[in-house]
């Protein structure tokens, strides 16, 4: 007995565990806090215990670099690792735009990958087919939203499913 959706469109573990994801999990990029961080934020997923700390260096409206820490599954940690690479060098506006697209991709398995260029982050598109893992993928991006909103002098609405907070900056 399989769901209709699955029989039309079989879901394979390969959709979730892409090589790029496993590579970032095994060899995380930009791990550790940055000395030049202008803002730090953290978040965790109460239902599973995954956590991410993010330190972001922003200068003149540009994200100069990010460092991350935390622990959790391959999806939460590789999502954070890929994010640190993809956000570096972007304007605040472009980073927030990108974050919005990635979160759409993570939550909607009909997301059109041709509509926006998400680069390596497209490897995370399979997450949407595994509903219980979506929060794992989202965690780092929720923390990023919190940090970027704070940097822009805004506050983000509280998401009690994935609580995040600014820790310094």
């Amino acid at each position: 007995m399989t769901s209709n959706r699955e029989s039309q469109n079989p879901i394979d573990l390969d959709d979730l565990y892409r090589d790029v994801i496993l590579d970032h999990y095994r060899s995380p990029r930009n791990r550790g806090a940055r000395d030049d961080a202008t803002i730090s934020a953290e978040g965790f997923n109460p239902s599973c215990g995954d956590e991410i700390q993010l330190s972001v260096a922003i200068l003149d409206g540009t994200v100069n670099g990010l460092g991350f820490g935390g622990s959790g599954c391959s999806i939460s940690q590789s999502s954070a690792s890929m994010m640190t690479e993809a956000m570096t060098g972007r304007s605040l506006e472009s980073a927030r735009e990108m974050s919005k697209h990635v979160q759409q991709m993570l939550t909607d398995d009909t997301f059109d990958l041709d509509a926006v260029d998400l680069g390596d982050l497209e490897a995370l598109s399979g997450v949407a087919k595994f509903p219980v893992r979506i929060k794992c993928g989202l965690l780092a991006w929720k923390v990023l939203d919190q940090a970027l909103a704070n940097a822009s002098g805004e506050s983000v609405s509280d998401d009690s499913d994935i609580p995040t907070r600014v820790t310094s900056g």
Binding site: L13, C48, G72, C73, S74, I75, F130, R133, C136
Partner: peptide
């Protein structure tokens, strides 16, 4: 060093239901 959520997801694909987390 495989996180238990990954273990649970992979086992689920072969029909094996276990719990992972705290």
């Amino acid at each position: 060093d495989i996180h238990s959520h990954d273990v649970a997801t992979i086992l689920d694909r072969s029909g094996v239901a276990i719990r992972a987390g705290h």
